[in-house]
Amino acid sequence: MHIAYWIVAALLAVFYVYGGGKKLLQSQEELRPMMGWVDQVPMPAVRAIGALEVLGAAGLVLPPLTGIAVGCAVAAAVGLALIQVGGIVVHVSRGESKVIALNIALLVAAGAAAWLATDWL
Rank of each mutant, 00 (worst) to 15 (best):
I7C: 08
V108N: 06
P33T: 07
F15P: 01
V38D: 03
V14A: 15
A105P: 01
A57G: 01
L52N: 05
Y16R: 00
L106S: 02
L60C: 03
G19H: 09
Q28E: 13
V17L: 15
Y16H: 13
D39I: 01
G87P: 00
I7N: 07
V74K: 09
A117L: 10
L31Y: 11
D119M: 10
A10S: 15
G36Q: 09
A114Q: 04
Y5Q: 09
Q84N: 13
Y16L: 10
A110M: 09
V8S: 02
L11M: 15
P44N: 04
N103T: 09
I3V: 14
A110S: 14
A105R: 02
K23T: 04
R94Q: 12
W37P: 04
G36W: 01
L12H: 11
V54K: 02
E30V: 08
M34N: 14
V8W: 11
E53K: 00
F15R: 10
V78C: 13
R32E: 12
A73N: 09
W37E: 07
L55I: 03
S97K: 14
L107D: 03
W6F: 10
A57Q: 10
G50W: 12
Y16M: 09
V99H: 06
W120C: 05
L106V: 13
W120G: 00
V61E: 03
K23R: 08
L62F: 14
M1F: 14
L116Q: 00
A4W: 14
G79E: 03
A81D: 02
V78W: 01
L31Q: 02
L107M: 12
A58F: 07
C72E: 14
M35C: 06
K22E: 11
L65F: 13
G59F: 04
V41K: 01
A4I: 13
G59V: 12
M1I: 07
A101V: 15
A73D: 08
L11D: 07
P44K: 00
V61T: 07
A75K: 12
V90E: 13
V38Q: 02
W115N: 00
A73E: 08
V38E: 06
V61D: 03
A109G: 04
W120L: 15
A45H: 04
W37C: 01
A4N: 13
S27W: 11
G36L: 09
V17P: 02
L11K: 04
P33V: 02
V92C: 11
V90P: 04
H2K: 14
L106A: 13
A113K: 07
A4L: 15
P42V: 11
